[in-house]
Design a protein around this nucleic acid. Structure first.
Lengths: 111, 111
DNA sequence: TTTTATACATAGCACTGCTATGCATAGTAA
DNA sequence: TTACTATGCATAGCAGTGCTATGTATAAAA
């Protein structure tokens, strides 16, 4: 399943914030996490993710810090801020509005 | 509640197609229908809707025909095509993938 | 006669998502 | 020891487009 461009754009932020709500993480791991929880139906490229992370950091929704992994490689970890938590809640709410609308329409159609 | 720009873009097509699945309709009525089923939480402008309708028609998802209303005004009615029904089903499926992902993340966070 | 509601249309540009590309290192297969 | 894959991050730059702003027209109502 390939998600439409619009849907990818609309879902990236809430998904990233929701992942970081559980625990701090870094770019590469986030991509894998998204694949995992979507049964490989959502496939993000790194080139698409990093700019989004930078935007979220600029917006103040997440903060970053560098850590060295056991492997020796450097990883840029992201931590969700209070503003990020609020944004995440807001986005989820907006999603539920649309979801509810689609739900109502489906039911109406079935009648 | 004001929906984010991305979400508006991603939800417009499935919502319009879902409305037309129930019965043929026209621009102005579609805007009112969206307000109604979303408890006035989704507010589309006509300037935003008409281009979307034209795009959907060009894509072959809907077809149009003119009708004169009792009021005397002309209305451009839209009818969903077979391709449109398929597209609608596909989009709904894509939405459920994202919805499911967000759901899983929420549950993981709660644990 | 002025305003509001109804009804559709689109030029054009501001905006931006993301592709394409680049850099770097660790592990592993050959 | 070489090549390849996986890991890991970064961004220039432009193709692509969503939608604001604007225009037209008619009916009804105030």
């Amino acid at each position: 399943m390939t998600l439409s461009k619009d849907l990818v754009a609309a879902s990236a932020t809430p998904i990233i914030l929701a992942i970081l709500q559980a625990k701090d993480s870094y770019g590469y791991a986030i991509i894998q996490k998204v694949q995992e929880i979507s049964d490989h139906q959502i496939a993000w490229t790194d080139g698409m993710l990093y700019p989004v992370l930078h935007r979220l950091e600029t917006a103040g929704f997440i903060e970053s810090y560098w850590l060295d992994a056991d492997s020796g490689r450097r990883r840029k970890y992201y931590h969700i801020t209070t503003a990020g938590n609020e944004e995440c809640a807001l986005l989820k709410q907006q999603w539920s509005v649309v979801q509810h609308a689609l739900q109502v329409l489906s039911e109406e159609y079935m009648k």
